[in-house]
Amino acid sequence: MNPITCAGVHFGYRHAPVVRGVDLAVRPGELVALLGTNGAGKTTTMDLLLGQRRPDAGTIRVLGRDPCADRRRLTAEVGVLPQESGCAPGLTVAETVRLWLRLHGRRDVHRATAALLTEVELTHRADLRAGRLSGGERRRLDLAVALTGRPRLLLLDEPTTGLDPQSRAHTWALLRALREQGVTILLTTHYLEEAEALADRIAIMDAGRVVFTGTLDEAGGPGSLATTFHRIAGQPR
């Protein structure tokens, strides 16, 4: 069973189509990078996978379940990093992580909090309120929250936006380690070098459709992704 399957998925706002027949499969233990220009439909596709919106047509299965009908059950198995941070600004970094660990029923709260903050390099910010973090630090806190449930599947919407090069490299190493542990990952990114560095396969969206899926070699090999992306994206459909 593939952790993610989309078949002929359509969705629109007030008769304006946004997702127009998306077909996408993500295999177990795979990291897939979803690329596309602004407005291509990436974030809406992520919302559909999360069950936050119901498709107008087509079928979506996440870990074998309908994400709308089984949204509560999937919460325990799917870690989510949205495009916009949802962390309460008045809580400290440590309080935020402890809260989400308790919501997931974790009993090892204090040990797990320390481990997660170490993983995202926020130990030195543990007692700082989330609202005082820099943009990159908030992104790292969002990632820690996404990991609190020990997820089988991660859905990450632009996970390294705002990170400095060192933090981005550390996050890449963490994502690679999670993939090696068997976690399946779908991420969106505007950084083509991020896709080249991390992805087992690449999917390119344009005008609401997935117009290319394949390995980096199938996209032209290392250093060729930018050429392939600009050749494919934005073409008349």
Rank of each mutant, 00 (worst) to 15 (best):
R168V: 07
G29P: 00
P3N: 12
L128Q: 15
I202N: 02
T44F: 00
V19E: 08
G135W: 07
T75Y: 02
I204R: 08
G64R: 11
R140E: 05
I204G: 05
L34G: 05
R237V: 11
G12A: 05
A146V: 07
R129L: 03
L133K: 02
P55S: 11
M1S: 13
G136N: 10
H170L: 09
L74W: 11
A88L: 14
R132P: 00
M46V: 15
L141N: 04
A233R: 00
E158V: 01
V93K: 02
P55G: 07
P165E: 11
D66G: 05
A115F: 03
L175D: 08
V120S: 12
H170P: 01
R231W: 05
M205I: 08
R107C: 04
R231V: 00
L154E: 08
E77N: 01
G221S: 11
D47K: 14
A115N: 05
R201Y: 07
G149Y: 14
D56P: 01
I185K: 04
R237M: 11
R107L: 10
L174C: 00
M46H: 05
L24A: 14
D127Y: 00
T75F: 01
R168N: 02
R71W: 02
T59E: 15
A94Q: 15
L35I: 10
Y191Q: 12
L143M: 14
